[in-house]
Design a binder for these strands. Structure first.
Lengths: 276, 276
DNA sequence: CTAATAGTGTCTATTAGACAGTATGTT
DNA sequence: AACATACTGTCTAATAGACACTATTAG
């Protein structure tokens, strides 16, 4: 059989193909938006604490009406998969040009009570400079705290208006499989969002050590101590100043600017040094 | 509004929900199966070389009839997403109880000429002990060689019956986005399989350094040199013996067995020491 | 002056890289 | 004996952890 005949066969096949032959289902995308915020300054000398936060939206419609959920939406039939999270973020939260990476695809049969829906979750990182525009009404930032003891992971999300708490139990050893975790005590989050949040936290804590993604959450100019505080709040532990500066020094460039007026020695401002 | 009313609302909503409201599409899963094979022994003294291989299947039907492709199939509407790769592997390649992890979800609009299909790719690792049963007729193992120069990645797949070669061009800096790579010179592989293979190789080369996944590709008993050769063929570079043994020593246990009869000093056999 | 953060010098401990050497089988 | 791999000792280089010290501002 020569190539021409083969191409012809393929065309004939495609023209007569019946797309209803296979099961069809809906595909959604959820976006886990991470950002850094400052706590209110308690004292003119003290530095504000860095808070690691995620963005949640209050559902106005069924299912899970009045619960909090990650911004998300359906993939359109003629839309690139990578475009869906961009479109959804723009519409639901008024955020543009953000760092996005695919997190994981969740496909448990009963994750949506309406119908079979597979969810491709994305992780987004944004910085203060991108928050010039206001959030839409039903969105709020929640500070993340995680307490881990053996096979029980407790995550607490706090905003000005609400506090959300849930627990994940590790029910078997395959840490890569979302079915290895069981959501318990979840009152306020929709769908399997607790799992998505947990997977995102894991990813973030890992990748911060071997990539430059943190800088997507930093403003253009920052002090090294601010950057260190961001690492610390994400990793959940303190770092030593000289060690941190040694590691970070090749990734940043000192600028001519300083941050002063704080009741202590002013700090040099740095910016990210793009490796390309 | 009290909780009882709210639940009632939710039920009413779900009962009247029309699932045809949203776009529906098909979802497939491809499985990138990695394994290690030995080259034929050239000399009674020499050790056989380790080859890093993937499993491909020859397509018997349109589209892409007669091209090679990863084992794959459609997700069924009532099937757990994580079950699909297990079922497909059992059916298409006669492999059971293999290590599986989700690799990436590919959703370019035109990746399937038939209809809009989103593909959740999985990575599987298997070892020789699992290969007792024969492969099905149209499946074959292909040795993987990768040559990388700047923004061009050339991958060569060799089996006894065929040789496949393709190139990926990095067309922008977002290495996490499959749209950043363009497939060129691909004659023999179906769909966007070159991308899946490339993503799997990346994942494998990274994870080998901070997880124990290699052991899923090792037989129950192995020598430290064999294990080292597996690391070397996956990473594409030689390692120093003492350094390798230092790193690996806490992950393995020495057994009472030795491998002898090879024209040189016999080697102790080790097995994986499960950390749990 | 004081409280607080900014930033550095240096010692030590740990880990990684390199090389050379010894050990022990089969033919 | 010769060849090939198995395995180890040890030196050196690089990296990470720890602590203590100096520097500098607003009030």
């Amino acid at each position: 059989m020569n190539s021409k005949n083969s191409d012809h066969d393929e065309l004939t096949f495609l023209n007569s193909y019946d797309p209803t032959l296979y099961d069809r289902l809906s595909l959604t995308t959820d976006i886990l938006v991470f950002g850094i915020s400052d706590s209110i300054n308690p004292n003119y000398r003290k530095l504000p604490e860095k808070k690691f936060s995620i963005l949640l939206v209050k559902r106005k419609t069924h299912p899970f009406k009045d619960k909090w959920c990650l911004p998300g939406g359906f993939l359109q039939i003629d839309e690139e998969l990578t475009n869906a999270p961009k479109r959804v973020l723009a519409k639901e939260t008024n955020l543009h040009d953000v760092y996005l990476e695919q997190l994981y695809t969740f496909g448990a049969v009963n994750r949506d009570p309406r119908l079979r829906v597979v969810n491709v979750a994305y992780m987004a990182l944004i910085n203060k400079d991108q928050l010039q525009d206001e959030l839409l009404a039903d969105a709020a930032w929640f500070n993340v705290t995680q307490i881990q003891k053996e096979n029980e992971i407790k995550i607490i999300l706090k905003s000005e208006i609400d506090e959300i708490c849930f627990t994940l139990l590790k029910i078997n050893d395959d840490i890569n499989d979302p079915l290895s975790y069981k959501i318990v005590d979840n009152e306020l989050l929709a769908f399997d969002n607790p799992l998505v949040i947990f997977f995102g936290l894991l990813r973030m804590r890992n990748k911060i050590n071997y990539t430059d993604i943190v800088f997507n959450m930093m403003p253009k100019y920052f002090t090294l101590k601010e950057l260190q505080n961001v690492y610390e709040v994400i990793l959940g532990r303190k770092l030593l100043d000289p060690a941190f500066r040694r590691i970070i020094k090749d990734k940043v460039v000192q600028t001519e600017f300083v941050r002063s007026g704080k009741g202590h020695r002013p700090s040099l401002l740095y910016r990210y040094k793009d490796p390309t």
